[in-house]
């Protein structure tokens, strides 16, 4: 019909358009790929000590790590939205010299080892970093604080939101925004009432990706924020530490992390479907 925006509603399969078959051999590598991803999960499951599982994951350290992870990941997702939505809009909707280069640089954390991200943050916001003195004057001590964890997570997760949303913005196109403007809506009104609602599914998936990435953040956090129970030791850091002394606890916590991540992604898909 008139609308060219992809609709998310799931159609009954008998209404799906007829499709051309895929070559049969393709199922073999596809299956191999799926097995490659899923088998390690089975591997974790096979090593879980179910007898004292509850005890392992409810220890004080584990609980604090999980809560801290959920708290910091939520905050960093929020930060990703606050910073990433404007970035995606500027990248998708405006043109200026050096834009291509800027886009590549902004997406750098996607390909950068997180430790490198942590080092970069350290030399920027650390005590002796680029802005360290300024922050010191303002009385802000970022290193070894929960804020540092959120910053590390935001740093590595931001590109996921930007990429996801920029793609959604480009797919949605500008036509609805043009119509809205011709109806007398100011740019802010167009942004609020047309642009954002139209890319909401993209924004949601971007936010979920950011949350998932934040939840799993390790390298940048341990480099930039340190590791202290209840303050900076998130679940991945706790898992890595537990591995030193108590492999069973590490496995149990890994499973918790996997379950939380699967839940988040599952919920998000559910949310998208009902949109």
């Amino acid at each position: 019909m008139g609308s060219t925006v992809p609709r998310i509603s799931r159609r009954p399969s008998h209404l799906d358009p007829p499709r051309v078959g895929v070559p049969r051999w393709i199922f073999l590598p596809a299956l191999a790929g799926a097995a490659f991803v899923l088998l390690p999960l089975v591997g974790i499951l096979s090593r879980v000590e179910w007898g004292n599982f509850a005890e392992l994951i409810t220890s004080d350290a584990s609980r604090q790590a999980l809560l801290l992870s959920l708290k910091t990941s939520s905050l960093s997702t929020l930060a990703c939205i606050v910073l990433g939505v404007p970035m995606a809009v500027v990248l998708a909707r405006t043109r200026f010299p050096g834009q291509g280069l800027l886009r590549s640089l902004v997406l750098l954390p996607l390909v950068l080892p997180p430790v490198v991200g942590g080092i970069a943050l350290l030399y920027t916001f650390g005590r002796r970093g680029l802005l360290g003195h300024t922050l010191d004057v303002l009385g802000l001590q970022i290193a070894f604080s929960t804020a540092a964890v959120v910053m590390a997570q935001t740093f590595v997760a931001l590109p996921f939101l930007v990429v996801s949303l920029e793609g959604a913005l480009r797919t949605a196109g500008r036509q609805y925004e043009v119509v809205a403007a011709s109806l007398g809506a100011r740019p802010t009104t167009v942004f609020r009432r047309v642009t954002i609602p139209l890319v909401l599914p993209g924004l949601l998936s971007g936010a979920v990706l950011s949350f998932a990435r934040s939840l799993g953040e390790f390298g940048a956090t341990i480099t930039f924020a340190g590791s202290l129970q209840g303050t900076t030791r998130t679940l991945p850091l706790e898992i890595y530490l537990q591995r030193e002394v108590n492999a069973d606890a590490a496995v149990a916590l890994s499973l918790v992390l996997v379950v939380v991540a699967v839940l988040v992604i599952g919920l998000a898909r559910q949310g998208r479907t009902s949109l």
């Binding site: 991803v37 950068l112 080892p113 997180p114 430790v115 490198v116 997760a157 996921f160 990429v163 996801s164 793609g167 998936s205 979920v208 990706l209 998932a212 990435r213 934040s214 939840l215 799993g216 953040e217 390790f218 390298g219 341990i222 480099t223 991945p236 890595y240 890994s254 992390l257 996997v258 991540a261 992604i265 898909r269």
Partner: peptide, 21 residues
């Protein structure tokens, strides 16, 4: 595509990709 990136994000996260500390 969303799912693909999600898997990458998770894989990165839980396996602490690139981290070697």
């Amino acid at each position: 595509r969303f799912t693909t990136i999600a898997v990458i994000a998770l894989a990165c996260g839980t396996a602490a990709c690139g981290a070697d500390t």
